Simulated scan of single mutants.
Amino acid sequence: MDWHAGRTALAGAGRGRYPRRGTIVSETGLTGCGVLITRPEHQSQELAAGVKAAGGTVFHFPAFDIIGRDMDEIRRKLTALPEPDIVVFVSRNAVAHGLAAVKEFNAKIAAVGPATRHAIESDGETVDIFPESGFDSEHLLTHAALQDVDGRNVMIVRGQSGRELLAETLRERGANVDYVCVYERTPYEPTPAELEHLESALGEGRIRFVTVMSVETLECLVQIMPSQALSLLRQSTLVAPGTRVLQTASELIPGIATVLAPGPQAPTMINTLIRLWQTG
């Protein structure tokens, strides 16, 4: 199969061939393969460790930094809002920087995806609303608890920007929706040495795949990469767990091959990389 012929979707195709989530299909399946990881290092440790354990080489180039907002500022914001019936966390960053401030509310907690749910539960809280499948706003909005929300107060905990679909749909269903922004995402500022290392690795063909977990990550990556490095990036294959990322990649990096992974969990991403690498 020619992975460079354009976008290839692995999600949903041949489901029976995939091992259960959490299982890596091969401990040597990435031998000789270089993978560029674009999330901040503290958020990509499991993915990086899995790539290395499978024999691959990790090139870490974070596209952005996460800066949490002052907790006192967040709490002042909360006092000006009506007490929520439902609090929605849209990411692990939202949990890390906002969960402590909203624990006092007697509200149902919703999580957009499994990683966000895990972060909440790891802090001792119960997640009441989460998608049975999928890991985005569209899937969360299908949950029964979010259908009849007329007159209910919904608080969405997120960064300084993001998709509006969740809030817009809940408002259409009659909910009163407020945002609480608990962190900012700022483009990473690479050093000249980091840029030189990246361009060298790309130019020498040592980076076979680049993993991008969100549209915001991709936008920051394109913003901070020099034009020469961005041009060289087209020689790699971009692997992402969301169709919106692939669509954005085709717009921002025309010509780059893209592959849709079945999910954002580290084992799932690693298994996708292994299958691509072994298929050639």
Rank of each mutant, 00 (worst) to 15 (best):
P190Q: 06
A111Q: 03
P190E: 00
S44K: 07
G55V: 02
A100F: 00
A94S: 14
A266Q: 02
P254K: 07
S137V: 10
L166S: 11
T38N: 03
V149C: 08
I66P: 09
M1G: 12
L99V: 09
A49E: 15
R21F: 04
L30E: 04
P241K: 01
M155V: 03
R21H: 13
D150G: 09
F61V: 04
A110P: 05
V88H: 02
V154H: 04
N176H: 14
R76M: 13
A229T: 14
D85G: 14
M269W: 00
P19C: 00
A261W: 03
V245M: 12
G255V: 03
G255N: 10
C181T: 09
E168P: 05
T268I: 12
Q147I: 13
A115V: 04
E196C: 10
G263N: 12
G174Y: 04
L47C: 02
L36W: 02
Y188M: 10
I129Y: 07
H60Y: 07
G16F: 13
M213T: 15
T186K: 08
I274H: 06
A53I: 05
Q247A: 12
L166C: 05
A94V: 05
Y188W: 14
R206F: 06
F64V: 07
A257T: 01
Q235H: 15
G205P: 02
R171C: 13
A9Q: 11
V180K: 01
T211W: 00
L218Q: 00
P40L: 06
V149F: 08
I37Y: 05
E83R: 01
L221M: 08
A175H: 02
R15D: 15
A48Y: 01
V149G: 03
E125T: 08
S236W: 01
Q147S: 10
G151L: 01
R76Q: 14
T169F: 01
A9N: 14
S133N: 10
E168H: 13
G68V: 11
I24H: 04
L10S: 01
G29F: 00
M71H: 14
D123F: 04
A96F: 07
E138D: 15
L78K: 04
G32R: 07
G134V: 06
E196T: 15
I109P: 06
I109K: 01
V149T: 07
A145R: 07
T237C: 12
K77F: 09
L170R: 06
I67C: 13
